[in-house]
Design a protein around this nucleic acid. Structure first.
Lengths: 242, 242
DNA sequence: AAGTGGTCTAGACCACGGA
DNA sequence: CCGTGGTCTAGACCACTTA
């Protein structure tokens, strides 16, 4: 079979199929929740075998961008609050059970990006960002302070959308077509400064878990810079490495 | 092709191939660094097609247990200090560069498992464990206190092997045939109590990043319970979710 | 029954590494 | 040169969903 060579390939065929799918995903042709064409249809359209399509789809399924349902089809993964919370915010209580924070206070405003924000978000210093500050609670106890910067150009109108839903990533996706697919965190312990101390209602100097996070979309583009302070009293940040 | 059905399958064939490989890995037939039989050989031996073998091998490669080298073969992944440090201990400095801690002080002794250790390691309370206490430094500054419990039965003689090498997981594998393939961490911030305070040379109450970790082998069996206290001054714990 | 993804096969050729 | 993994094909049947 396939004894005819057309031209030497540099890049595997499935990579080209994958790139084509990624193109559709970032261009908005394929929107969250939508079913992809059947694998044999894609194969015919792109003049490749089904196995090659499967390999391309496999890689996107592994990254969580697509979801297969046997007998039904392959769908663009929808960022549900459940998925966002369990995948990107793995907070557990002392018994190891996952917990969901809820927002207590929120402040949203437009401002120019600071130097650090600009570097993390790959923006020019002074470019407009939307800053979201939230205090979140586990049970009734204020436990998390979040300061979030988002490029204003990426999500126009975000600054007018307060109050924002509890889980931001599904909102980014549903209302602005921005899908977070990976995050990079840096964790450390700090003594509470005045602002986190007031926000969480604990004495200054209280040890807090501090996280700096950059969230990336499918193309590796930074879409959010977030600094969080966690009061890890009846709360822990869970990480699995494999 | 393959029009003859022998008997209904419940479990996919590649899962049986994978299970067979896992058996070889945990039984010691396949040891770290060793080359597997070629894929077509495995396929013939197990009376399956090469594609099926590939699918089984793929999954173990994805888990980091096997490593492919085109033109050379497939090998059982060797836990090098580099790999262990970069994969399971992602510590970075303020510039984001990875850093390697070195051991300053070490204490190794046999003792009965406490209740928490027994639960985490799935042992009977009082079963013998080897406890390793280490103070580790970044640069010249004492930055990490580690208290590690390992089931004594799993690694006989470990208590006599002090001083232990800097990276423990390669040692577990090379000298005791125990391969760590995944870890589960719980992170929080605490105020330094007397012991960590003395070990790290900081005042009591200094905020420390505290990590509790269980390390698991290929079969999900716990092989180590570790509590660490990090002085995150010029040090951060990096996490990538995707 | 028709359509989807899931598994499996047999065999081709390509790219790399080492004798 | 040969053996290894890497890519790709064409087509079969299975398992699940929906109508």
């Amino acid at each position: 079979m396939n004894k005819i060579r057309t031209e030497p390939r540099i890049e595997p065929l499935y990579a080209r199929v994958r790139a084509e799918l990624v193109r559709g995903l970032s261009s908005g042709e394929l929107t969250p929740g939508m079913a992809l064409p059947a694998e044999n249809v894609l194969a015919r359209e792109m003049s490749v075998s089904v196995g090659t399509v499967r390999k391309a789809v496999d890689s996107l399924v592994a990254e969580g961008v697509l979801t297969r349902h046997q007998g039904k089809g392959t769908f663009v993964t929808e960022q549900t609050p459940e998925r966002a919370n369990f995948h990107f915010f793995r907070l557990v209580d002392s018994a190891g059970e996952r917990v969901l924070p809820e927002t207590l206070r929120e402040d949203v405003a437009m401002r120019p990006a600071g130097n650090r924000a600009a570097r993390q978000l790959k923006l020019d210093p002074g470019a407009p960002v939307v800053r979201i500050e939230r205090v979140r609670a586990i049970g009734r106890r204020p436990s998390i302070l979040e300061v979030i910067d988002v490029p204003a150009d990426l999500m126009p109108g975000l600054e007018t959308e307060s109050p924002l839903p509890n889980a931001l990533y599904p909102h980014y996706q549903a209302d602005h077509g921005v899908s977070v697919v990976s995050t990079e965190d840096r964790l450390g312990a700090v003594a509470a400064k005045p602002k986190p101390s007031k926000a969480l209602g604990v004495p200054e100097g209280t040890p807090l878990l501090r996280a700096g996070r950059v969230a990336l979309d499918l193309t590796g583009n930074p879409v959010e810079w977030r600094r969080s302070w966690f009061l890890t009293v009846d709360l822990a940040y869970a990480v699995t490495l494999g």
